[in-house]
Design a binder for these strands. Structure first.
Lengths: 131, 131
DNA sequence: GTCCATGCAAACGATTTGCATGCGT
DNA sequence: ACGCATGCAAATCGTTTGCATGGAC
């Protein structure tokens, strides 16, 4: 948990137990929704409020510590910001896999504009499920 | 509008004036949110209800006539399903450009699984805005 | 001690639902 | 004529806000 603590010290946000637990929960899960964060924390930290989770997610996003991802048919999920990467979602087990993102290059794109940022979601069946 | 009518006939959905107008509005706009569909239609079809728009979007999505796209910091938008393509969003003028999607191939992906479907969002500045 | 964070409850906005009526087939 | 579609209003759900109290720095 020490590294999450120092991660917070790079921002103006205070390292409260609630905030640290939220970060740890996201880090452990990889990708997780607000409700699931709340449900995970509630049993071990009963006083926590859903509003606190929402407020924290916002401030952590504003400080660029979290990224928000939008998968088909689900509420937004959050992850600790790392190197840019794509997401592969298995439609059978719903697991989300991160993968390294090559440049999505396409000659047509030069005629459209200049890219700063990309979000790539691939859906399919993972090796585990394919058997 | 005749082609939208026959598009509906490929499904079990009835070709009501409301439904046809919704489809035409989406087709004209390219990518549009539910509220904006409603606001576009309301003046020329005052009796239409927001609930009707919602219900239709759902049934059209279920029939695979519409695709839902999620752009950063905005409500979901809808488009008529066409060939698979990516979206380039200009962060200056907010215009959405469709572009042909090459295979996003990455050696690492073979170790993860098999891809059926992909969603690619690229953000940047378009030629018009870059000047 | 200061200022930000928390937790609660109330407010809000977006979406869904139930139901009576209307309309496409 | 049948069954789905519409439009309204009410219900519901997710998210935000205001405010008094508590805790990190």
């Amino acid at each position: 948990m020490k590294d999450l603590h120092s991660l917070l010290q790079t921002t103006s946000l205070k390292a409260t137990p609630q905030r640290l637990t939220i970060l740890k929960t996201i880090d452990d899960a990889g990708h997780i929704s607000i409700e699931d964060i709340y449900n995970e924390i509630k049993p071990i930290f009963p006083s926590i409020s859903l509003a606190t989770v929402y407020k924290n997610i916002h401030s952590l996003k504003d400080e660029n510590i979290l990224a928000e991802i939008h998968l088909q048919n689900s509420k937004p999920k959050y992850e600790i910001k790392k190197q840019p990467h794509g997401h592969f979602i298995c439609k059978t087990c719903n697991q989300v896999y991160d993968f390294e993102l090559q440049n999505v290059c396409n000659p047509n794109l030069n005629e459209i504009g200049v890219i700063n940022e990309s979000e790539v979601y691939l859906y399919g069946i993972c090796k585990n499920c394919k058997g």
